[in-house]
Amino acid sequence: MSIRVARFLGWLWTRSVLLIACIVTVIPFLWLIASSFKSNEEFFRSTFLPMDGRRIAWERLTTEPFRRLFNELDFTNSLVNSIFLSSVTGVVATLCCAMGGYALAKFRFKGRGLCTALVLAAVLIPAPLIIAPTYQLLFRLDLLDSFAGLILPALAPAFGVFLFRQAIVSGVPNDLLEAARIDGAGEWRTFVTVVLPLVRPMIGTFLMITFLGMWNNFIAPQVVLQDPAKFPLSVAVAELRRGYYNDYGLQMAGTIISILPVMILFLVMQKDFVSGLTSGAVKA
């Protein structure tokens, strides 16, 4: 076998593997989109788009699932709840972690070793372990069935402090901090004008992580919230499966509404996000 043939086979192999992987990844998305515009009878008649012979029967598609979601089922409310909960959590948690990481990275003080060790140890705590005691705590603080009960426990993820500490140690030179201090900048100003801009990629990554974490969180709102008016999309969508078990189009439309904002955000932020996510693992 000549080298040229072998090279061509290699080329063909890598391209077909990637092509198959891409198709397998995309098809469920396409199926989801097509399904959300279908009536229930149509579900039994076609896999993707309704066909009339070889022609696509566009007229058999319907926007009714979406109309019902927003008119009958108050999905607007859930959408607003999700956006509010995720944005507040994302911004405040990122700020808390950036500040904490800065303190551990650039200051020498008694207790620094202990704090760092505590943060590192806390990364190992599996979330399900503290669900029950957190629920009990929220009950005692009278924070059950409130947004505060969802947001407060999400503001101090230990791995965030760890990530920011790493980013600041490697990305913020001490000379710059000293220069800012000599120029008379206070501690807070130094942090905001010198430190934060230098770790901008980590801020983007971590905002995305915390935003997504809240958006996609199911178990916490499921446990904490009672009042349907407060449900974020994750719980509202799961409720569709309970209350409208046979209404496939409705369930898929709700799922699309929940995924779409996140996908748009991901496309906007993808560059920082993917590299920031893997950097910690690869450098370590």
Binding site: C96, G100, F107, C115, L152, L155, A156
Partner: peptide, 30 residues
């Protein structure tokens, strides 16, 4: 400067308060 006594604690405060209340305490309570 770098050895400031109060600054690091003030920077850590928001994190530490939430962390103590919603991670350390539930861990002990579990």
């Amino acid at each position: 400067g770098f050895t400031s006594k109060s600054a690091p604690w003030l920077f850590l405060a928001p994190f530490l308060v939430c962390f103590a209340l919603f991670t350390v305490y539930p861990l002990v309570q579990s």
